[in-house]
Amino acid sequence: MTRTDLDGELLSRARQGHGLSADDLHRIDQHNVLSLGMLADEVRRSVRGPSVTVRRVATVPSAGIGAEWARMTEGADEVRISHIPDSREATLTLVTTVRAATPETLPVWGFSLEQLTRASWFCGRGDLEALAASGLTGVVDAAVDVVSPTQVAEVFEAGLAVGLLSVEQPVMGDRVLFVEGLLRFLAAESRVRRVAPLPKQVPVATPTTGYQDVRLVAMTTIGLPMLEHVVVDWLQYGPKLAQVALTFGATYLDNVSTVDDPALGRRRTHLEDVRRNITAAGLTPAERTDAA
């Protein structure tokens, strides 16, 4: 039940914000799931404290915004456009429309970078600048297994922000290689300070397991202590796994809906429930206050 001296030394380095070597990370990754969680929790508490940031998101309906939009944005930290239209013009019009219909105090985020790069009309910098001019605050995320640091840099250069680094496909192999890959990505492009390590796309027949998910969260926490946040998507992963992930080092619950969608089950959306889950995990809820 006690950690080794070497664990203590590695933790001490992580707590000071230093990255660990591949050998160190391999050693840490050998721990059983509970010991690994315990180490990650120590790093998280000393580097980022016990607070959990909750990001409330008003997602633009794919059918477009209607009369209920004002109600949907009440209590939101941001507005998010998740679907991407077929043409450049339609996309810019969508952003303009959403921006105009949304209170000025709320940032309008939209799309993932890989979503944009896959759009047939997307040509790069010029389109990003046009999106910024239309009122887009930033690109929601950029999947490190799809886009390059150069592509992320281009987003910033176009006057947009990038919310977080994400992962599109499950990390099936070596977690240490994943952490090293993230370190390299961040060395090349350091302006994004949040990472969501759990995959955005998961096969229905063979989803990632609980062990895989929480181990990845823990390794990201320990291996990347310089990050501002380790992020879990509340809507996608649900309260059970998201809550457990908090105890393995996650500090940020993204995509907490402002509107209860009965189709998702009520337990997926209530802010009160989110706060209850955070508190029951021994942590402290804190909603984001910055506009970006």
Binding site: N32, T209, Y211, K240, L241, V244
Partner: peptide, 12 residues
């Protein structure tokens, strides 16, 4: 009741 992920973590 807990889902597969927390169901698996029950083994720990």
């Amino acid at each position: 009741t807990q889902g597969g992920k927390v169901g698996q973590l029950s083994l720990a």
